[in-house]
């Protein structure tokens, strides 16, 4: 069942209610032949599309607020359906529905009648985008301005493009040029990644928020055989048992094999910025773990931050 079908199936205001729902809106000579009343003998997708178009025309051409409200009500099941996909990510389902509803309202308000697309087609990426933005905003432990967050996410993509192109790690000036920002803004945006907490794996890395955008999860590499083949000396190093395979592998590549972060990113199939975050997180785990071992003779025994 598609999202649209699901939405229709759950929609109490769907086609069965068409005549009654449309009647209160009144007829409009401009819409003669396009309103639901004109097609009410039929059933199914065509009818609902025509009702959408009718209500959208009522709202956009005549400022009919009731038509707008009816569209919102009709499409709330779609919002709930999309919000449900993200409900297991630590946010309240009701909050996600509210956020998604904002995306729906924006879609209805910005809908361009002349483009000839269905409202569902236009609204779905708007709703998903609004939910993704919510996760992205909530993923920062320190409030970081939206512009910097988006530049940070954009830089992720720019770095991934520049490394293979330049065959080396880009400089700050190159990143600034490629991302239409100043070097200071790039440095500031990179610094904000220190405040980065746990952005949704489905959050769009390019900041556009469309449904077709790849999520961060698409940038994560799969389980590599190489994770299992690293040398024993790495896995036996103090504290390493607390790390997962990929973290051990990345630390092994960086500190035992001497690869740069960009090289590791290419090897593992994730972004350089993600490598940076994983290294920092892994070192943090090691610090905590070695602190817990209560063995002051083990090197690098630092515990919690002061």
């Amino acid at each position: 069942m598609t999202g649209r079908d699901e939405h229709r199936a759950n929609d109490p205001l769907d086609l069965e209610a068409l005549p009654g729902q449309a009647s209160h809106l009144g007829a409009d000579e401009d819409d003669a032949g396009h309103g639901p009343a004109a097609d009410s003998q039929g059933r199914g997708k065509d009818d609902s599309e025509k009702l959408d178009q009718y209500l959208l025309r009522r709202y956009h051409l005549h400022g009919d607020r009731k038509a707008r409200e009816q569209l919102i009500t009709m499409y709330l099941p779609l919002v709930r359906s999309l919000a449900r996909r993200y409900a297991s990510r630590g946010e309240h389902f009701d909050d996600l529905v509210q956020v998604g509803a904002i995306g729906l309202i924006k879609a209805i308000d910005r809908f361009d009648l002349s483009r000839g697309v269905e409202l569902t087609t236009y609204a779905t990426p708007n709703i998903v985008g609004e939910i993704k933005r919510y996760f992205r905003d909530k993923g920062w432990s320190v409030r970081v301005p939206r512009g910097l967050q988006e530049l940070n996410i954009r830089l992720n993509k720019v770095i991934d493009e520049l490394v293979p192109k330049l065959q080396r790690s880009p400089t700050i000036n190159e990143l600034a040029e490629a991302s239409n920002a100043t070097p200071e803004e790039v440095l500031e945006a990179l610094e904000t990644s220190q405040a980065y907490n746990s952005v949704s794996l489905q959050a769009s890395p390019n900041g556009e928020g469309g449904e077709e955008d790849a999520g961060l999860i698409d940038y994560l590499g799969g389980e590599e055989e190489a994770y299992d083949t690293m040398e024993d000396r790495t896995t036996l190093a103090p504290g390493f048992a607390k790390l997962d395979k990929r973290e051990r592998y990345i630390l092994h590549l960086r500190f035992f094999e001497g690869l740069t972060q960009s090289q590791i990113a290419e090897r593992v199939g994730i972004s350089q910025m993600h490598v940076s975050r994983l290294i920092r997180r892994s070192l943090e785990k090691l610090r905590e773990e070695i602190g817990e071992l209560e063995n002051p003779q083990i090197l690098h025994p630092s515990g919690n931050d002061k």
Partner: peptide, 23 residues
């Protein structure tokens, strides 16, 4: 880090270089 980043950028350090000195 802000000071290191600013000066590193002036030296045309790569992102990898900067990440190293930050780390």
């Amino acid at each position: 880090r802000t000071v290191l980043g600013g000066l590193g950028a002036r030296l045309d350090f790569s992102l990898d270089d900067l990440e190293d000195i930050y780390l």
